[in-house]
Amino acid sequence: TRVETATETAWISLVTALHLVLGLSAVLGLLLLRWQFPAHYRRLRHALW
């Protein structure tokens, strides 16, 4: 049971790290898009909202 718990903890930390990385890359990508294509971003936002 001790090994299982350790594996579970490792998986949880791995998944958390993955989610953090994905979230950060998504935010960075959005910022980059907004910085590179302001007109396109505004049009996209206008279409979405």
Results as ranks from 00 to 15, higher is better:
His46Cys: 11
Thr9Glu: 09
Gln36Glu: 15
Thr16Arg: 01
Val27His: 04
Leu31Asp: 06
Leu20Phe: 11
Ala47Arg: 14
Thr16Gln: 04
His40Ala: 12
His19Asn: 03
Ala39Cys: 07
Leu32Ser: 08
Leu32Val: 15
Thr5Pro: 04
Leu31Gln: 08
Leu18Thr: 04
Leu32Thr: 00
Leu20Lys: 01
Gly23Met: 12
Leu31Pro: 03
Leu33Trp: 14
Ala39Met: 14
Leu31Met: 13
Leu31Phe: 11
Leu14Gly: 04
Leu18Phe: 12
Leu30Asn: 04
Arg45Asn: 03
Ala39Gly: 15
Leu18His: 07
Gly29Gln: 08
Ala39Ile: 07
Glu8Asp: 10
Ile12Trp: 07
Trp35Phe: 15
Ala47Val: 11
Leu28Pro: 03
Val15Pro: 00
Val15Thr: 03
Leu32Glu: 04
Gln36Met: 15
Arg34Ile: 01
Ser13Gly: 13
Trp49Gly: 02
Tyr41Cys: 14
Ala47Tyr: 09
Arg2Gly: 09
Leu33Val: 10
Leu32Trp: 01
Thr5Glu: 03
Leu48Met: 15
Val15Leu: 10
Trp49Ser: 00
Thr1Met: 14
Arg42Trp: 14
His40Ile: 07
Leu28Ala: 03
Tyr41Glu: 08
Leu31Ile: 11
Arg2Cys: 10
Val21Leu: 13
Leu24Phe: 10
Arg43Gly: 09
Arg2Glu: 11
Leu28Thr: 02
Ala17Glu: 06
Ser13His: 06
Arg34His: 07
Val21Pro: 02
Ser13Met: 13
Leu44Glu: 00
His40Trp: 05
Thr7Asp: 08
Gln36Cys: 01
Trp35Arg: 15
Pro38Asn: 13
Thr9Phe: 09
Ala17Tyr: 03
Ala17Ile: 09
Trp11Lys: 04
Leu33Phe: 01
Ala39Arg: 14
Arg42Thr: 15
Ala6Tyr: 00
Trp11Pro: 05
Ala39Tyr: 11
Thr7Ile: 11
Leu44Ser: 07
Ile12Ser: 06
Ala17Asn: 01
Gly29Trp: 08
Thr9Leu: 13
Leu24Ile: 09
Leu22Gly: 08
Thr7Asn: 13
Val27Tyr: 10
Ala26Thr: 10
Leu44His: 00
Arg45Gly: 10
Ser25Val: 10
Ala6Met: 11
Thr7Val: 12
Ala26Gln: 00
Val3Glu: 03
Leu32Ile: 06
Gly29Ser: 13
Val3Ser: 04
Gly29Cys: 14
Glu4Lys: 11
Thr1Lys: 11
Ala47Ser: 09
Arg34Tyr: 09
Val15Gln: 02
Tyr41Phe: 15
Leu14Asn: 04
Ser25Asn: 12
Thr1Asn: 06
Ser13Val: 13
Val15Trp: 04
Ile12Arg: 04
Val21Ala: 13
Leu44Asn: 08
Leu18Trp: 11
Ala10Pro: 06
Gly23Thr: 11
Leu48Trp: 08
Trp49Thr: 00
Leu18Gln: 05
Ala10Glu: 13
Ser25Glu: 04
Arg2Ile: 11
His46Gln: 05
Thr7Gln: 12
Gly23Asp: 05
Leu22Thr: 12
Ala6Leu: 06
Leu20Asp: 02
Tyr41Met: 12
Leu20Arg: 02
Ala39Glu: 15
Gly23Cys: 12
Leu48Arg: 07
Leu28Tyr: 07
Arg2Asp: 10
Trp11Ser: 03
Leu18Met: 05
Ala26Cys: 12
Thr16Met: 02
Thr9Ser: 10
Arg34Thr: 08
Trp35Ser: 15
Ile12Gly: 03
Glu8Leu: 04
